[in-house]
Nucleic acid binder design. Structure first.
Length: 662
DNA sequence: AATAAGAAATCTTGTTATAGG
DNA sequence: TTCCTATAACAAGATTTCTTA
């Protein structure tokens, strides 16, 4: 314990200026994603690090210590820095802490404003400040730690295993408890907290067939614990599960078939892509069910996210073929990060799960982007699109985790740019072969349904979807996307769409925290775009698209990588695009949701289109003067910086730093 | 002996419930 | 009373391993 306490102290706790100490204790600024750490992502991160310090607010000592720690932290070496910086703010007043963060504890709420907000700001949350309880590791509660872990990730989402890793890495107390023997207890508690607290949203990440992503529910968490969402999760899980099983199993088969199956995949994709509406009633039902369930809880969020869900299938496809195939399995949940591509696919999927999936599809970056976008959106509503940057980052992250598995997807990502920019789309496409299908783009189209979904409370997750949805509606956007570069766009789009409500929420939290610098950069551009374009909701979506575009433009001029998929998409779309572009300018793109088909068709494409894509994009972009590409520079900058920086990590890392109010 | 398919065992993930501070 | 932690149990899926044909 003593150690733990020390550790806690170690954690840096800072008080955010932003927050009102009193109200919110805000306890912590979590370490945002620390760049280095890359940590952010567990896997990736190395980061991590933990914070060894924890601080307790209460304890004066601690406080002092904490401050010291911070100071130290800064300097701290690698992880030290890392250490997750959890900066907790000590809110003095009891009031402050949102959740239970006890003072020291970083309750989630405390963590960031955003987080807090997310959590619910729980003001109610109780900030408990007092030193009351500290846990062996410090004042932070499990929920707080989890929140930190999640927020520390660039993407703001982590898988369970990643959370475990983070704990081990970042929290001294758990460092030596990582072994299976000793970890059972606290891991169980972690799981318990994730499931129990509304503050945490589970996003399916089927792509890999692996565990779901866990995100902080911007809205949710309010009170710390919120009732749980179980139902939701459960439901989702079901769907998801099914997907998983399928995915994995199918993978092989699919893989094999995949190549052939590309067509299939497309078909499957088409399903998903199809807006919910397009989907079978069953699917729809599922959605609804999820929603309803989700709504109940944070977990619901998951539903939201799902938009992106990775489709297991997609994932599989990706995985398998990476390129090849995509045999679409069924549902497209968002594919895992890698899947980004899948994400595209997922897009289509309306699945509730989709909500969940979103993350995946989005990939970490996406998520971040989304968040950013959202925030932007929220502010403006017009969603700025950004996507690119974050995406990149995200992907990076994603890659970390899943990257390998994805393989094919990885390929996509490998581009980095792609991944980054588009994520889902690009990647998928690229990866999968049929990624095009993946394109969530299609999904984008589906919007209508989506929209409805979004509205659901859990939006967080929805964000992803929204993207999807919004996109759908956006179609125009789609066109834009096409123009831009589907790939990147796709994601971007997603992001954008997502931004909506959820986004806003998330944004607040996420933005503040995570995105940080990079995001900032990105955001600006998008915003501008948005402003220009945005016509209402569509506008937003548009913005998103635009954002996406820029990304492409910036990121990839040639983004050949994305190329294949994109190219395909573009090719198909291009026609549309041309039309769409105007729309974009005009504001609402007439895009018929139905375009999906086209998108779907994309699958058919094989990857030659790339060249065309670029050209098209360029041309279109040019045409689309309306859009402010201006952002590009920004984006470019951001992206470049990030990328150059070593990719995501670089960006992410930096951002965190910037973040640190320090 | 090599391969594939199926079953079993095990692990992981996620949810729920209960007890206690 | 509320929130949290801790622990246990259960369910389901995923993965690995073993067995069999």
């Amino acid at each position: 314990m003593a150690e733990a306490l020390q550790d806690e102290q170690n954690l840096n706790v800072e008080i955010d200026p932003d927050f009102e100490p009193q109200k919110r204790p805000r306890s912590c600024t979590w370490p945002l994603p620390r760049p280095e750490s890359g940590a952010s992502k567990p896997g990736t991160n190395d980061t991590d690090v933990i914070p060894e310090e924890e601080d307790d607010e209460n304890d004066a000592d601690n406080g002092a210590a904490s401050e010291k720690n911070r100071a130290e932290l800064g300097p701290r070496p690698p992880h030290g820095a890392s250490s997750l910086p959890v900066e907790v703010r000590r809110s003095t007043p009891s009031s402050s802490r949102e959740e239970g963060v006890e003072d020291g504890s970083p309750s989630s709420s405390s963590i960031h404003p955003s987080a807090a907000a997310a959590h619910g700001g729980s003001a109610s949350q109780q900030l408990r400040k007092s030193s009351a309880r500290r846990n062996a590791w410090g004042n932070y509660s499990y929920a707080d730690l989890i929140t930190q872990a999640i927020e520390s990730s660039p993407e703001n989402r982590l898988t369970l295993s990643q959370i475990y890793d983070w704990m081990v890495r970042s929290v001294p107390y758990f460092k030596d408890k990582g072994d299976s023997n000793s970890s059972a207890g606290w891991k169980n508690s972690i799981r318990h907290n994730l499931s129990l607290h509304s503050r945490f949203v589970k996003v399916q990440n089927e792509g890999t067939g692996k565990s779901s992503w866990w995100m902080v529910n911007p809205e949710g968490g309010k009170g710390g614990k919120a009732p749980r969402r179980r139902a939701v999760s459960m439901d989702n899980s079901k769907y998801i599960k099914g997907a998983r099983g399928r995915a994995t199993k199918k993978k092989a088969s699919l893989m094999a078939a995949a190549q052939d199956g590309s067509s299939e995949s497309s078909s499957s994709l088409s399903k998903w892509t199809g807006s919910p509406a397009s989907r079978s009633s069953d699917e729809l039902d599922a959605w609804t069910d999820f929603r309803s369930r989700t709504n109940s809880n944070a977990s619901t969020l998951s539903g939201r996210l799902s938009p992106i869900l990775a489709n297991p299938e997609l994932d599989e496809a990706q995985d398998g073929g990476g390129g090849g195939d995509s045999a679409p399995l069924s549902p497209m949940l968002y594919s895992s990060p890698s899947s980004m591509s899948s994400s595209t696919g997922p897009m289509a999927l309306p699945d509730l799960a989709g909500t969940m999936n979103l993350n995946d599809g989005l990939s970490d970056n996406l998520m971040d982007d989304l968040l950013d976008n959202i925030s932007l959106t929220a502010a403006q509503q017009a969603p700025p699109g950004e996507g690119g940057d974050d995406e990149d980052e995200d992907e990076g992250d994603v890659d970390v985790e899943e990257g390998e598995g994805e393989g094919g997807g990885g390929g996509v990502r490998g581009d980095g740019t792609q991944a980054g920019s588009v994520f889902p789309f690009g990647c998928p496409g690229a990866g999968l072969g049929s990624p095009s299908a993946s394109f969530g783009a299609p999904s984008l189209f589906s919007p209508p349904c989506i929209t409805g979904l979004r509205q659901s409370p859990m939006q967080t997750i929805q964000e992803n979807r929204q993207t999807t949805f919004s996109c759908g509606p956006l179609f125009g956007d789609a066109a834009l996307q096409d123009l831009l570069g589907l790939e990147a766009h796709g994601p971007a789009n997603v992001m954008l769409t997502q931004s909506d409500p959820l986004m806003s929420q998330a944004m607040s939290g996420a933005l503040q925290n995570s995105r940080r610098n990079a995001l900032l950069l990105r955001k600006d551009p998008p915003l501008s775009l948005v402003a220009g374009l945005a016509p209402g909701g569509g506008g937003v979506s548009v913005a998103g698209w635009q954002a996406g575009l820029p990304t492409h433009a910036n990121g990839r001029p040639g983004s050949s990588a994305a190329g294949p998929a994109d190219a395909k998409a573009r090719l198909q779309r291009s026609p549309v695009k041309s039309g769409s572009l105007p729309l974009g300018a005009g504001g609402v793109p007439p895009a018929p949701p139905h375009r999906f088909p086209a998108d779907l068709d994309l699958d058919v494409f094989n990857g030659d289109l790339e060249c065309d894509m670029d050209a098209i994009i360029r041309n279109e972009l040019m045409d689309a003067d309306c859009l402010d590409l201006s952002f590009e520079p920004h984006l470019a900058t951001a992206q470049n910086t990030e990328r150059n920086g070593g990719g995501f990590s670089g960006s992410t890392k930096t951002s965190p730093q910037s973040w640190v109010p320090g």
